[in-house]
Structures are given as structure tokens and as C-alpha cells.
Design a protein around this nucleic acid. Sequence first.
RNA 1: UGUCUUAUGGUGUAAUGGUAGCACUGCAGUUUCUGGAUCUGCCUGUCUAGGUUCGAAUCCUAGUAAGACAACCA
Length: 563
Amino acid sequence: METNNEEAAKKSLNFIEAFVEQDLKDKKNDGRIQTRFPPEPNGYLHIGHAKAICLDFGIARNYGGICNLRFDDTNPVKEDVEYVDSIQNDIQWLGYQWENVYYASDYFQQLWDLSIDLIQQGKAYIDEQSAETIAKQKGTPTVAGTESPYRNRPIAENLELFKKMNTGEIAEGAMVLRAKIDMASPNMHFRDPLMYRVITSHPHHRTGWTWKAYPMYDYAHGQSDYFEGVTHSLCTLEFEVHRPLYDWFIDQFKDSDYRPRQIEFNRLNLTYTVMSKRKMLQLVQEGLVSGWDDPRMPTICGLRRRGYSPEAIHSFIDKIGYTKFEAQNDVGLLEHAVRENLNKTATRVNAVLNPVKLIVTNYPEGKVEMMETGNNPEDESAGTREIPFTRELYIEREDFMEDAPKKFFRMTPGQEVRLKSAFIVKCTGCKKNENGLIEEIYCEYDELTKSGMPEASRKVKGTLHWVSASHAVKAEVRIYDRLFSIENPSADERDFRDLLNPDSLKVLTNCYVEPSLAKAKALDHFQFQRIGYFNVDPDSSAEKLIFNRTVSLKDSWAKEQNK
RNA sequence: UGUCUUAUGGUGUAAUGGUAGCACUGCAGUUUCUGGAUCUGCCUGUCUAGGUUCGAAUCCUAGUAAGACAACCA
């Protein structure tokens, strides 16, 4: 979020920033900049919303304007307070604070009054045909619509019926208010768009049963912008065709030089996931994920639980930019962003996910030596800590091979390897059970090679992480991977449930972590050395430590093996 | 036989009529007490055809391809 002046000068503007700067230069709207983030409280925010949030709040912040949060709560059937709280929480977690929080429902009276005006001007009428009939009369994109028989209803009658729409005297679905524009318009949205419908079945989460007639998006959204003084109304590409109607409504009511301007940008599409609210809701309701905050979900709360930091999300959104081109963003770039961020900030710790015992045969039994180790090689100020070294350790099973290929730089009989922050040891053999499974590995240490001593600088090819068997703490580690096994599940004709990655979650229950992790707090980030970035799951407790893998470290050995 | 919009390496994004650059990915190397990170190098691109211009990724025309629009959703 911070950029120094030199960087800012070099950075090229995206097309929206360019518009904003031009408007500022032209002194439009008295040089005011005002944006809004207008979520509908009917679901949890996802990374696509984060892209919009960064733009809405970012433009305001960078150009000395303000950004309000406005809940577009015009459909009581779908909306709920549950979502209002989570939305506010997620925005703040991303590092933004709205100037005011508004609700479209705050404007129900104003919107009502304006539509009365419109009716009185003869520009709106009550239609009492069925939804199906109205849809049929709309025509198709290539065929003009036909006019409703109620289109020329007398003004007084319109007024009377409109009032009845709001008193409960008119049944849900029986009548609507439509703007009288042009049924033959090549833009479908101009074919007498609906302005109001009746909803009697659900109370509104804020206004209760006060209103029975509810305004529709095209009318409510633009006018809400206008009431608030929004100058730049930023939204995604699919609203492009709505813009002429947005402008039309503004023109009907505008009473000064001020006017809000709608600008559309491309939405965020991430590979290997779905972003539609409907599909995400199905994943949750059908138990295909553990909830909205399942670490595999692209929701803000899911990413947070997965171990993503706000900084990483900002950095990612910065990299993908804002254009009018419908993009497919590589989830690899998001993973890169979080690695880049966590590499600078995460404390390095030792954790053994798939343990096998390593016995240092020439190390005294019962002896405990405290080894000093750096918390973060990328950040001197992170300091150091001590970890216990003993005769019996755990290392990763994958770090040992009895018959190793030439390029295997880890533990194998006869080869020297470094135990990170401790000693150089030489493998002397192993013990296997009757099935050939390796039960113990043996090695001898060279006490002159203790970290920090001159002999420690000896060249050895491999360095392994380890924990002391008697000090290590048991932990559960959840290994998350991409939710879907194919790149673009939304474009696939198969049912999206069939495209889920069966290996998107692996739970490892037999992991050992160094003792310092016993006091880690929920959501704390760590790098498990040589493995990846992990954070503490909110369900973790002193009795049962639980870690989530945010993302693996790049693994050039795995790549080598796949050749 | 509509309206609107878009098209730059595998992906994303710059170049605002004047040397097609950056990031991710991939590959090769350097370095390293993380096979991480770092550092270096390399591969790969202006949808097509015309036109305007001294000069076009950029402007114009036509094509091609893709997306949005026919909810009493937002």
C-alpha cells in the first residue's frame, strides 16, 4: 500500500485512474472524488470482491476522496444481517475503513417519492401482467418487444395502484411499476424496465414489514449513488449494458451539474476455483467444504484461515491490474504473492510431518544441548531462539534413502549431511521391520561441527530439519491443495461437483513440531523449514495443535524427480 | 439477423502515433547452514486484411474470435 514518490511517478495508471485524473483536471463535480463499495448482504465476500474493494477504497485514498460502504439491500428474500457483519469485518481486515456505512434501504422513502414524481410526469406505469407475459413482451435481443396493454393507464390510476402495492392490498407478483421508455430499444434494459415489485412473504432485515414495494437494482443503485454524492461508481463489466439506463434515471432526477459516472472493469477469475456465489453456497450447503471459511474457499475468510495475509492479497491484486479484458488469473500468481510476503515475515520453525526416528549413536544419552537458531534469515531484527538437541530426533521419512540416486543430497548411508543449526552427521545405517519399513536411522555426529564453530563451515550438500524426540509436540497438520482439479471449472460442461480435486485436503495427525509452537496463537504464520508456510487454525488448542498449510515452498527436488 | 464491449508471449499487464517492456510460469546457471530465498541469463507476443502516416500495438474501415444483455436478482 505504501509507495514512495519515485515509484508512484514511474507507475503507469490503469484506465480508471486515468479517468479520475482527467475528471480532476476538468474540475468535474467540484473536484470531489467519492466512491462506494456496494455489496448485497446475501453472501460472504470473496477475492473477487477484494479486487473491487481495493479499487473503490484505493481510488478514494489515493485521490483525497472518500469511500462509503453501502449495502445494496433491496431484496429481502435473499438478504440477512449475518452477512452484514462478516462483510464489514472482511473489509477492515483488508485494511480499509469506510467514511460512512449506508444502506439502500435508508433511501426507500426518497426512492418512493421520486417514483411518484415519475408517475406524475407520465413516465412510469403500473403493469398487472404476469412475470411470464412481461418477459415474453420484452422480445429478444434481436426482436423488438411489444407494449403492455397497461402502458397508457391514466396517471391517477397509476398513483393509486402504486400506493396499494405498498400497503399489502396487492398480492406479491400481481403488479409492478415500470418506467415508460422504449419497447423497441436495441438495448433490452430500455424496454420499460421494472422499477418496483411487491414482496410480502419476507420481512426486510432492517425495515421489517414497513415496505411491501421494493425498488429494483437499476433504479435503486444509481439513485443511491446520486443521493450520496458518488462521483465514480465502479463496477464489473457485466453492468456495461446497464450504463445507459443508469444515466437515464440520473437524467430524470438530476437538479445540478453534479452527476455520478459508472465505469466498468474486469472481474477477477481465478484458475482452479469457482467464484460464483451460487456455486460457493452449494459447496457449503452440501458439505463439500467445511464452511464459508474452509481454507480451500476463495472467500476472504477462507483465505484468512488458510494463512493469507492482507498484504499478500493486496500485492496479488496489484499485479493483476484493472482492464476491460476478461482475464483468467493464474492461482500460481496468488501463491507467488503469499510466498513473497511470508518469506519476509514468517518465523522459521522446525516441524516434521512424516516422522522417522534418527539416533545419533555417539551422542551422550540424556544430554540436552540448546542450539541457537535464527528466526528469519530475511529479517535480522526477528532475532534468534533456542531449540533443544538430543540423542534421539525425528526427521522426515523422505529425507532418507537407503539406496540413493547421485543427486540425492540428504541422509543416506556413508554420506554427510547437516542438521540445521546443530551438527554435521554421517549416516551409518538403519533398522527395518519385517515388511521392509524403516524404523530407525543411525548416524554419528562430529562435535567440532556445531553451528558457529569453524568446522561447521565444512561443505555438505544437504541440510535437514529435525526435532528432538523427547521435546517435540504432537500436532495435526492439514495439507490443502487446489479445490478443483481442472483449470477452469466454470467453463466445463460437466457438473462442477465432479471436478473437485479429491486430494484438496490431507490431514496428517502424526506430526511433530518444535516445543516453541505450543504457545502459538490462532492465525500466527510460520514457515516450516524446507516444507512450506503454515498458520495456526482457529480450532487449534493447547491440547491439540492444528496447523494449515498456506502454500508449499518451491520444491526444485520434486521437480527434478518428475523429470 | 440487434446493442454494448474486448483482443499484446503459456498467464496477467505496460507502452497514451516514435526502440514492444515488466511480473508470474518454464528452462539454464550462480549462491546458500532451508534443494527455500537471492542473483544472472534464456525461451515465448501486438487476431486477420486493408487504409491514414515519414512512422501504427496504438488512429480509421472491414472481417474473425470471445464476452455481456431477453430475472418481479444484484
